[in-house]
Write a protein that binds this DNA or RNA. Structure first.
Lengths: 302, 302
DNA sequence: CAGAGGTATTCCATATAGGAAATTCGTAAT
DNA sequence: ATTACGAATTTCCTATATGGAATACCTCTG
């Protein structure tokens, strides 16, 4: 590993050497480099010291390279070109991007909002791979660890973790909450009030079972509580349970619209005023400047 | 051509970046580079400015690279390795050398002294190519122009040209001069004196016809001159002419020994004291430090 | 031999990198 | 919450090295 010794040598001298090799003249090289002739002459002296070879011998007009210089010339140009590429700002073209992205989405967003975007993404970047994961309690940890590229979270679940340093966040969209019951549910014959709602058994979904959801928080502020009878892992399960029982669940409006088409369920408004739920997109600082990542994020619209 | 812009950036920062990428810690990188931690921290700041990317984000222990840094990491290591090779002293192994050398030798040296060396050279460097040229008046020009790698000259022919700047010279060997006549030549019956010698017609060889040879110069100092009756281009021709006529020629002892075996000729000493002729090897400054060239020159013994 | 065209050298001002120490930052522990 | 700790950053200062102007020095040419 030559790093320590490499750091001792002045690599910029090699750029000067390249100019000298191309121009074969101290004067012309100095013009190319926007330096004075004396500066380049001194650089040449340093190069001779560094390489241990005269590199050039003086001739009538300009310099003629030694065989060592000629052999260096063959190697040096491509290396400097590579170095130049390294410091150049990266370009991103979705057509040629072949990266792998892992995205953790809540079930509702996954099914509703993201489906169309996904098609667009894959169409404009045919070589990328996307791994979709269901959101879980460890998603933010995995985000922090760099295992997941993007996480979308409903803001009632953020548990304050958006304050994790080095995590960026973008507000995506808001969605009103609604109540869902089966078709022909007896409550549909009654006035739909807060009391009626709390009289029903509720279905808790996923991570929401520990009463951190906006619904539970709002109820708690009123000194109220709801009766979570069945806890399920996902919205499909919740809807199916709802369809077959008298239990109700609180859902985002988006999901409810979708569920009404797919299942024999009906939507009711929330009987209390609840802040609409907002979805936030999270990503790690390490990807913030990444052009490919920026491009991917652009598909997550407000 | 990015040379002008390349010269504006500090390439040594990239060595620092490589250390940071490997160590993922400013402190450890500074140890690797034998610098203070603050120096590396400032270099990192300059790198961030240069690349336009944070490159690393701080974490509990050390740094974690951004995706830009990771993509740089892939390119940078091999480039720096190449750069390292460029500044490393070149190694030379005759077994793997495939260079082409052009050598101009005087006829006598070609046939006599160099034959054995040539076999040795080709044996230890099986992949090199050697082009042997007969010495001519333009050989030194071609040497100066880099068309010829080595020139061996008898020192009576140097015409002061060894003072050409940027030309190196090495004394090879000395050889006494002798006179050559045909077998049974009438003069062999007489005392061999200076008068007897000058009474004979002489054969001039190659470039020697313009009386610059050591023989002519020595005679001239004594106010004498010889009668060059026939001028030929090479020693074989000279010897054949000598064999068939009563003309004599002056030869190096080496060639005379060889000629006595091959032709019906006889050697006589020089009738006056003449400095032994010396052969010098010439090469261009541009090849002086070249290891392969040095190796080749080593076969030309004193 | 003078002059042209080039390179090396000298001298000097200045920018810059590096070190020591203070500071801030982020995390873990009490 | 508060504290403590490890690590990166910032501040301040100095020494070094780089670049420029002028000059000296080559080497070939007319």
């Amino acid at each position: 590993m030559p790093i320590q010794e490499l750091s001792r040598i002045n690599l910029n001298l090699l750029v000067c050497l390249q100019a000298l090799l191309e121009e074969r003249s101290v004067t012309r090289a100095s013009e190319r480099l926007n330096l004075s002739q004396s500066a380049v002459s001194k650089s040449l002296a340093r190069l001779r010291e560094l390489i241990g070879d005269p590199l050039f011998t003086r001739a009538a007009h300009g310099l003629i390279p030694t065989s060592r210089a000629l052999s260096i010339q063959e190697q040096l140009k491509p290396v400097l070109d590579e170095l130049w590429k390294v410091v150049q700002p990266q370009v991103f073209d979705p057509l040629y991007c072949d990266r792998h992205f892992t995205i953790a989405l809540p079930e509702t967003a996954n099914h509703l909002k993201f489906q169309n975007s996904l098609a667009d993404i894959l169409k404009s970047a045919p070589h990328i791979k996307i791994k979709l994961m269901h959101l879980n309690l460890k998603s933010l940890e995995e985000l922090a660890a760099g295992k997941v590229d993007l996480v979308a979270l409903p803001d009632d679940l953020d548990c304050g973790q958006h304050r994790i340093s080095g995590i960026h966040r973008k507000r995506l969209y808001k969605d009103k909450l609604v109540c869902v019951v089966r078709n022909n549910h007896p409550c549909l014959e009654q006035p739909w009030t807060l009391e009626a709602c709390l009289a029903l058994g509720h279905i808790g979904i996923g991570a929401v079972t520990d009463r951190v959801s906006i619904t539970d928080q709002t109820l708690a502020k009123l000194g109220l509580d709801r009766d979570i009878v069945v806890a399920v892992g996902d919205f499909h399960s919740a809807t199916q349970v709802c369809e077959g029982t008298d239990l109700m669940f609180v859902s985002s409006g988006n999901w409810a619209d979708y569920a009404e088409e797919l299942y024999a369920v009906t939507t009711l408004p929330m009987p209390i005023t609840v802040e609409p739920i907002a979805y936030d997109l999270y990503w790690h600082e390490m990807n913030h400047q990444d052009l490919a990542h920026q491009w991917l994020r652009s598909y997550f619209k407000v």
